[in-house]
Structure formats: structure tokens, C-alpha cells
Design a protein around this nucleic acid. Structure first.
Lengths: 341, 341
DNA sequence: CTGTTAGCGCGTTCAC
DNA sequence: GTGAACGCGCTAACAG
């Protein structure tokens, strides 16, 4: 920068002023400076600016996996909200395992950001409790979190309940939960959605059979595998609640393989409303977890955290942390039947 | 940091030494310092370290869209390669339009990184030519790029040729190219893949009918839309080469909608080998563009660029820029028939 | 409208 | 094995 200043015959301060536009500079010197900068191929050093300013105008989204479409869509939404304000979003990966997630978190990396949206999957409440950081933080995730953090989540129980109720109303009697788990509101996504399934049965005065809870990891191959298993075991079922759209895609593949027609023989509902789910064959009925609401709220929370000053993000002595739940909504497409009546 | 030093009764230098481990420190003072740091909740300021060091041990991947699965998968691969070396990957979005892409590029953002992998989609060679940056850069993308940059690409022509040849060999005679364009090796992904389609016809002594080139943007809804269009127009076809897997998913949806059986009535091949393509119904045959090779080479190139020193990335006076093409490979699943004989 | 001074929080260099 | 001084590149704050 001093090179530019020298070439333009001014001080570095003036160069800085031209670049930031914070102070008025005569048109004459401005053009001289701009010329000099262009000639020298000068590039502002953002690292230095950030150090000086104590701000970076950048928010990080830390996700467990780069390659899950859910996070890609979330990132795109957040970027769209941040861009008009001249703020930036960068995405970092915390890692595929609980250990990696922890290690990522321990690293002082996010000192580099004004705030961090942390998508929690593998970490436990205890892990998070150890996490002392002064960077404004908002947690995204479905399990129980320490109360002292701001936290945004979906309405997993409500969404699954809605979906299951619809299946019941369309005549389904034996609804398998692929990706199911021990029902619980606080133990993560799978237990919460399974709870919704159970509650919907209760609402309808029907029995939720534990034998229809099919455990499966939330990866690509598992949905198909799960269907193969229940078919092989001769378990009767006339509908599937897949706890994620990814699992649902596998379920559809498995059903096709088994010669079962959707929705005539078996109805299917997913959860997440991924963009790609519109294109499954048949088009997937699913639960929309309130993506837009979720993204908006997460940023709003982060902004108030940033506003009340970095440096006391963790001790939370100031305001009470906020917890918001985005409302879920049922999206009916072609893998379910019409409601009777 | 000086607080910690004070609390531990040492100088900041010693604290620094403890933290970096660069110089030997007596076990005694080390523990004293560590205790003090923990008590005070001290966090290293990475911005300052980066300014001082001139390095960040971080590579950026700049992509046009966060929410396209292809980029998510690429990012995951790169992160997997970087992690063992203690280097980090962050993903930034350049923006959805050519304008946004340009603006993103113009910003001095990637001074923040040791190197940048830039995924080019909307920008032209001329745009890139204007892009003077001292940050080591490797271009990823399928159109013609200025020769002075390192560049990694897929074998689009070869891959499409392979796929088309297989369709021809299985008896297909009228192969529509969904997402096709004016054939050309240098004008981007769609023209290159269309060229492969044309060349395969030539190889087989068959006629590549221009009427079977179906233009379509590479987004989610377009594949289905394209099929609707050709069916409505009464164009006869017995196979589809979709230029991306995403388009292929739409094509499968469109064919199902039209009551056409896959692969009996119409065969389908995609391009990209996305993870999700294994779960389409039926499972999609596709071209794998050599993902792993691509990621490895991109990083290797970036590393030599970084090694020869930032500060003269763009003028390329030093070494000749490198251009590598990853080999494509056909992945046969259930949307194609067996080769005859 | 422009320049001078000082310091953001580290780590290299050189002394002890 | 430890400390003091200096500077990475930028920009508030205060002159002028």
C-alpha cells in the first residue's frame, strides 16, 4: 500500500481513504491513487484489515458433511440472505465423526469469523458444554443442546406426526419408520421423528407397532437396504415414513426392486423436502421443515449475538439465549394417496 | 496473549512458544502457561497469526452454487485430501450469474487463502483474462480458459462418446441429447458433451440428427420439461444422453410420467456419477468424470503454484501453466440394456 | 481535504 | 531456556 502511496505521491492514509470511501477525497487525488493501484496491480490485504477492524463481515456455516445436499441447500439460502448486506458466507466442514467434529470445534478457527452457525449432528450436549468460545455462536440441530446457547431447530415431532396422520387418514395401517429409533424428543432427529410417528398413532387411536421401527443410518445406501430387510423378513407394511428424503430415495429404489407399486401397494413419505425430491419416481411426498424460516431465524439470532459484542458469547451473562423451532409443513406429491372423503 | 503471559509470569514470547511448540520450553513453564491460558479462556487470534505468517494453511474452493450436489461432493473429496496434512478447506460461493461470479472474483477475498480452486461456469475467457490476482489459482471447468492459468478439467468429449457408443452398441438408433448444444470442444460442458455424442455417431457410421439435440438449462426441473417437449412434439427417440445426472433424474421422471419404460422403451445415460444417481428408479447408468483424479490433480497443481511463491501467480513468468484432463469412465447400471453379443 | 502517529496480536530475530 | 524489540498491512484518532 505504501508503494501505491509513493507512486501516487500521497500518504498511505489517503490510499486507504480512497479504497474504503470512508472519507472524502478530491476527485483529482482519487483518480491518481486509483491509477497507481491499477498500474502496480495492488491488492488490498484483507487479513490486515480484519486484524485492524476486529471484524471480518463473514459468517461461517460449519457442517458435518460437505456432501449432504441438505447442507448445500442451507448454505445457498444463508448466502442469499447475507449477500444483500455485503456480508459473506463461508462453509467449513467439521468432520464426519464425533471425534472429528470435536477436533474441528476445539481449533480456534472461527476467530476468523464474526459469527458461526454450527450444525450439530454427532456431538453430545456434554461436548458442547466444554466448548468455550468467545465467538458468537448459533447452534443448528435436533438433539438436546445446552440451554446457554442460541439454538434453532425444526419441528421434527410435529412434522412426522403430520405425515403419519396423513398416511393413517389415507388408509395405511402398518406404517414402517425407516431410520427409526427409540422415540424421544431430545435425542436427535431420528428419535424425534419416530416420536412423531408414535404420537400420530396415539392421536388416531391406532397401535404403533415397535416391530415397524426399522433402524438405518442416514446414508445413501441404507433406505434400499432397509426395504430389502423388511421384505425378506416377511414383515407386512403398507406405508413407509422415511426419516429423511435421502432414505426415502433408497426406499423407493428398494420398493421398485421388490416389485411393490408406489403408492398403490405402499405409500411413502420423506422428511426434509430436498430440492431433488421433486424428481424421484414417483415424486416424493415429504415434510418441509421450514427451511426459509430456519435460515432467517438463525441469522437473526446470530446478529443479535454479534451486536451484543463478541467476547462474551459463551458466558451468556447478558441476554437469555433464544431457542426457536421452525414450523413443519406437509408437501404432498405422488408417493401418497388422496385423503379419503 | 499478554494477559496470559502476565498471569503465568512470563513474556508473551514464551506463551507463543508454548502454543506453537516451535521452541523448546521447560515443562514447568509450559504447564504454568497452559494453566493460565485455560483459566483465562484465552484464544489464539488466527487473524494476527495469518498476518504475521503470510500463510493461512487454508485453501478455498470457490463454486458458483452451494446447492449443486456436484460441488458438495467435490468439496468433500478435497477436504479429505487436505485434512491429513493439517490444511483446511473452506467453500465460498461466487454467485449464480456471470455478473455475480465476476464481482466475487474481483473482490480481494482470496488474499485470505494460500490458494484458490476456482470452479468456472459462467465466466468467459475474457473475464478471466482481466482477473489479475497474486493468489495461486487453479481453474476447474469445462470451457476454454486463458492458457496462462493452471487448469483441470474432465474429458467431456471422451465420456459422452463412450456413453453414446454404448447406446449405439445396444441397438439405440435415435439418441436424444438432453441439455445439448452446438457441438464444440471449447465452449463449455454442454457443447463438449454434445460433441462426444456426435463423434460417437461418426465412429459408428451413424447419422447424428440435429433434431435430437434438446436444449435445456442444467437445473432440476429441466430434464422433465425436455421430455415433455419431445414427447409432445412427436419426436421419435429410443435413448437419451442427459448431459448431467441432474438432468437425467428429470428425464427419468418425465419418461415415467409419459408411460415410457426404462430401459425397454427408452435407455438413459447421465453424466457426472453423482452419489445420488445410484438411487434413481431405475438406477442410472452414467459417466464418471474421474472425480478422484480431478481432485488430486487440482491440489497437486495448486501446491506447486503455492510452492513457487505467491506474488507471481498471475504473471506466470516462472513455470508453464499445466493443463490436465481427468479420464472419464462409463458406469453401467439399470437404465441401459446389455451390449449385444 | 490530507498527513502523522500509534497499535490491532502475533512471531521472527537477535540478545542474554 | 527466556526476553525485548520490531514489523506484518491496515486504519482510527487527532492534527493541520
Amino acid at each position: 500500500m505504501s508503494d501505491v502511496a509513493h507512486a501516487a505521491g500521497v500518504s498511505t492514509m489517503t490510499v486507504s481513504n480512497v479504497l474504503t470511501g470512508r472519507r472524502r477525497v478530491s476527485t483529482q487525488t482519487r483518480t491518481r491513487v486509483e491509477r497507481a493501484a491499477a498500474d502496480l496491480g495492488y491488492e488490498l490485504n484483507l487479513t490486515a484489515r480484519h486484524l485492524r477492524a476486529g471484524r471480518t463481515d463473514t459468517v461461517a456455516l460449519a457442517v458435518p458433511f460437505f456432501d449432504h445436499p441438505y447442507f448445500g441447500e442451507l448454505a445457498a439460502r444463508l448466502a442469499r440472505l447475507l449477500a444483500p448486506e455485503g456480508r459473506h458466507l463461508v462453509v467449513e466442514q467439521t468432520g464426519p465423526s464425533r471425534e472429528a467434529e470435536l477436533a474441528a470445534v476445539t481449533r480456534a478457527r472461527w476467530q476468523l469469523y464474526d459469527g458461526v452457525l454450527l450444525s450439530v449432528v454427532g456431538m453430545t450436549a456434554a461436548d458442547l458444554d466444554d466448548l468455550r468460545t468467545s465467538v458468537p455462536l448459533v447452534l443448528l440441530g435436533e438433539q438436546q443442546m445446552p440451554a446457554r446457547y442460541d439454538h434453532v431447530r425444526m419441528d421434527n415431532v410435529g412434522g412426522a406426526r403430520l405425515a403419519t396422520a396423513h398416511l393413517l387418514a389415507t388408509g395405511a395401517r402398518r406404517i414402517a419408520v425407516v431410520g427409526g429409533a427409540e422415540p424421544s424428543a431430545d435425542a436427535g432427529m431420528m428419535p424425534a421423528r419416530t416420536l412423531g410417528w408414535a404420537l400420530a398413532h396415539e392421536d388416531a387411536g391406532a397401535a404403533a407397532e415397535p416391530g415397524l421401527v426399522v433402524r438405518a443410518p442416514a446414508d445413501l445406501a441404507s433406505g434400499r437396504e432397509a426395504v430389502r430387510r423388511i421384505v425378506r423378513d416377511g414383515i407386512a407394511f403398507d406405508a413407509v415414513l422415511a426419516v429423511t428424503d435421502t432414505l426415502a430415495a433408497g426406499v423407493l429404489a428398494g420398493l421398485a426392486e421388490a416389485g411393490l407399486r408406489v403408492p398403490d401397494d405402499v405409500q411413502v413419505v420423506g422428511f426434509d423436502n430436498l430440492a431433488s425430491s421433486e424428481l424421484t419416481v414417483p415424486a416424493l411426498s415429504t415434510v418441509d421443515p421450514g427451511h426459509e424460516h430456519l435460515a432467517t431465524e438463525a441469522l437473526r439470532l446470530l446478529d443479535v449475538a454479534v451486536a451484543r459484542g463478541p467476547g462474551r458469547g459463551a458466558d451468556g451473562a447478558a441476554d437469555a439465549p433464544r431457542h426457536v423451532t421452525a414450523p413443519a409443513e406437509l408437501v404432498l406429491r405422488a408417493t401418497t394417496r388422496e385423503r379419503r372423503g
